[in-house]
């Protein structure tokens, strides 16, 4: 009776099974998005190679990172651009 009353006032406490599920989802999203530093370096170098075909950029300033919000993970590439190259698109 008392327990019922407390539940009615404060809301049902969440079951540990669903707490575990939520915690696992978050931690796995984080685990899965971890890129080893040597791979990250490789991504950075290859991105510079591709982008340099079309843009003049300061390759020391190109920054690659993983950003995460509530439920998604994004690869964010940030680079200052000096100017756009004249490229023939055939």
């Amino acid at each position: 009776m008392l327990a019922d009353l407390i539940e009615r006032i404060f809301g049902k406490p969440e079951k540990t099974g669903s707490v575990a599920k939520d915690r696992l989802r978050v931690v796995l999203a984080s685990d899965r998005s971890k890129i080893p530093p040597e791979v990250m370096d490789k991504i950075r170098i290859e991105l510079i190679q591709v982008l340099s075909k079309y843009l003049e950029l300061d390759d020391t300033a190109l920054n690659v990172s993983m950003e995460r919000d509530e439920d998604s993970i994004a690869l964010v590439v940030n680079t200052p651009v000096h100017r756009v190259r004249e490229v023939k698109v055939s």
Binding site: K15, T16, G17, S18, A20, K21, L24
Partner: peptide
Amino acid sequence: KMVEQGEMLG
């Protein structure tokens, strides 16, 4: 039993 009670991952 624990899964049914919501206290274990199913």
